[in-house]
């Protein structure tokens, strides 16, 4: 989550920028430059279109998904539409979830859902932004379907044994979003304040919403 203060050498998310501009050029970076220039020269794309696409991707963040979750928490009719057709409900709010069908799975008092892509890195990137590095890692992909409780514990999520854990393995044909359970004590909060409780990881299932202050 973004910090409220700014550092010269930190990105908006508070991580150091990768100093790729002043370290030796790699083979794969060379390929990216050559590929991009050839695509522009051949008329496939333009520099402006590439910049626009990067800007669009940068603009997507877990805040988009959090807004959808908060709406579902306050509006039972919207929640019903979200569970029935996740893609259509997101479009209703002005978010474009992409061509692939968005399936929403709901955490309840007795069930916790978590999403993984064992085969690659399928992720609702149009609603949450690019996936975190760990989502694409061997450890997460391999272990989440086998020992989800242990993996969740590494994220700080300790689930009692009487909670059912459902693991959803993505494919290239659909995307999953977890609808976390609304935190206790959040009754008086409005939609915007509720959205601020919804973390990225709570929508993947590797986290829970923040408790209200």
């Amino acid at each position: 989550m973004p910090h409220d203060h700014h550092h010269e050498h930190l990105s908006p998310s508070g991580h150091p920028y990768r100093p790729d501009d002043d370290v030796p050029l790699t083979y794969w970076q060379t390929m990216e430059i050559a590929m991009r220039e050839l695509l522009i020269e051949k008329g496939v794309t333009t520099a402006a279109e590439i910049a626009q696409q990067i800007g669009a991707m940068d603009a997507r963040s877990p805040a988009d998904g959090a807004a959808v979750v908060a709406r579902a928490w306050v509006d039972p009719d919207f929640k019903a539409r979200l569970m029935a057709d996740g893609s259509a409900a997101c479009r209703e709010m002005g978010f474009e979830p992409g061509a692939l069908r968005l399936l929403v799975v709901e955490n309840t008092a007795d069930t916790h859902n978590v999403v993984v892509c064992t085969l690659c890195s399928c992720y609702p990137r149009n609603l949450l932004g690019l996936p975190p590095d760990w989502y694409k890692s061997r450890a997460y992909r391999a272990r989440t379907v086998k020992e989800p409780r242990k993996v969740l514990a590494e994220f700080g999520v300790e689930l009692p044994d009487d909670i059912t854990v459902r693991v959803h393995d993505s494919t290239a044909d659909m995307r999953y979003l977890v609808l976390p359970a609304r935190p206790a004590g959040s009754d008086g909060l409005d939609e915007a304040a509720l959205a601020a409780l919804v973390t990225r990881d709570s929508m993947i299932g590797t986290g829970l919403p923040r408790p209200p202050e």
Binding site: T118, L119, W134, R138, A139, A142, R143, V151, F155, D169
Partner: peptide
């Protein structure tokens, strides 16, 4: 197709 294999801790 690595689902279900053994692996180390998740690097966050």
């Amino acid at each position: 197709d690595m689902g279900g294999q053994d692996a180390g801790p998740v690097d966050l």
